[in-house]
Amino acid sequence: MKIVVVGGTGLIGSKLVAKLREQGHEAVAAAPTTGVDTLTGEGLAEALAGARVVIDVSNSPSFERAAVLKFFETSTGNLLRAEAEAGVRHHVALSIVGTERMPENGYFAAKIAQQRLIEKSGIPFSLVHSTQFFEFARGIADEAVADGEVHMAPVLFQPIAGDDVAEAVGRTAVGPPLNGRIEIAGPERFRMDEFFRQALAAWGDPREVVTDPHARYFGSELSERSLVPGDDAVLGRTRYQDWVRT
């Protein structure tokens, strides 16, 4: 089966392409570096010819509110139109657990806009909402720095390994369209402040982690369950301590 992975050269996309090819699928990595640009439409028709499934794991180069919204609206709109013309039967998009809980977050608002376009497109679809990736933990810590200290809220946190994300997205893509969403998360649930206290110690990072109920997560103040999925989430297999040792 031909499956086009938009954002196929990135962190999750490259893992997806490799896993799908191992399963015998014709997986095409679509990205500007491979001649496919969803913002301009360049190369889309050629890449999607004969494709049965499209997986969108692309990301905006800018997280500024207006820029990220323009990226997802333009990219997704162009992609869905090209899919309709090519007769694609299943559109799969990777999103984030908790997007609707923090609409003041510009990136999350853009992902909501993307989701609405997909839902209204008429193309059968599946949305995979994931928690934060292990690979982004250092970036999350750096974003939370104030006066040399890492400020973290004492809320629930359930990150997941990128390999487990790719496995879940790939499994969803080769199955029947959900015309809805699933949530995926890591197998362990932590307190966010405690997770980063232990993580920084393991990294040999001397910065102090301060427990701060009002600490902001990329501009948003968190409630207890802002970042974690519901009880029916599909859980990955990789524990953080095992991942960090590899």
Rank of each mutant, 00 (worst) to 15 (best):
Q115E: 14
T40C: 04
A215R: 09
W203N: 04
T76V: 14
E64G: 14
N59F: 04
V28G: 10
T76W: 09
F134S: 00
F71D: 12
P177M: 13
A215N: 04
D212V: 10
D231A: 04
V57S: 08
A86R: 08
Q198P: 01
R225S: 10
F157L: 07
E85D: 13
L127F: 14
N105S: 10
V234F: 09
T34A: 01
L94V: 05
S60D: 03
A146P: 08
G122A: 14
A30G: 15
A137Q: 06
H151M: 02
A215P: 04
G87V: 04
D212S: 05
W203M: 05
D147Q: 14
L235F: 02
R225Q: 11
S226N: 11
L235E: 00
L227E: 01
P176K: 15
W243E: 03
V88P: 03
A202V: 11
G148P: 08
D242A: 11
A161I: 03
V209P: 12
A27E: 08
I182R: 05
A144Y: 01
I182K: 06
Y217G: 10
V88D: 02
P103V: 11
G180M: 13
M152D: 02
T131N: 05
D142C: 00
A27H: 10
A84I: 10
L227P: 04
H214V: 09
T9G: 07
E85A: 15
E194I: 13
G122R: 02
T238F: 12
P154Y: 09
P177D: 14
R89C: 01
H129A: 07
N78A: 14
A185M: 05
V92R: 00
G122K: 04
S58G: 12
E194F: 02
D56H: 12
L11A: 02
E167H: 10
M192A: 07
A18R: 10
W203K: 06
A146Y: 08
A233S: 09
T38D: 15
L16I: 12
L80I: 15
V97W: 00
R81M: 15
G204C: 03
L48Y: 08
E26S: 11
A161H: 09
L80D: 11
A153V: 08
E83A: 15
M192K: 02
G148F: 02
Y240W: 15
P187T: 05
E22L: 12
D37P: 14
P229I: 00
I140N: 01
P187E: 06
R52I: 03
G230L: 00
V54G: 15
D56P: 07
I55A: 06
A18F: 07
Q114K: 08
V169L: 03
V17I: 10
V169P: 00
V165N: 06
L11R: 00
T34R: 00
S60Q: 02
A201L: 11
E100V: 15
W203D: 05
A113D: 13
F134G: 02
D212N: 11
L11H: 04
G230I: 02
R101E: 06
R216M: 12
L127A: 11
T172I: 10
P61M: 00
G77P: 04
I160F: 11
A110P: 15
L117Q: 13
G148E: 06
D37W: 07
H25P: 01
G8T: 04
G180R: 12
T172E: 08
L44M: 11
K19Y: 03
A30H: 09
I140Y: 05
D193Q: 05
Y217I: 07
D163L: 08
F108L: 14
G186S: 06
I12Y: 00
G122T: 12
Y240E: 04
F195N: 03
D232E: 10
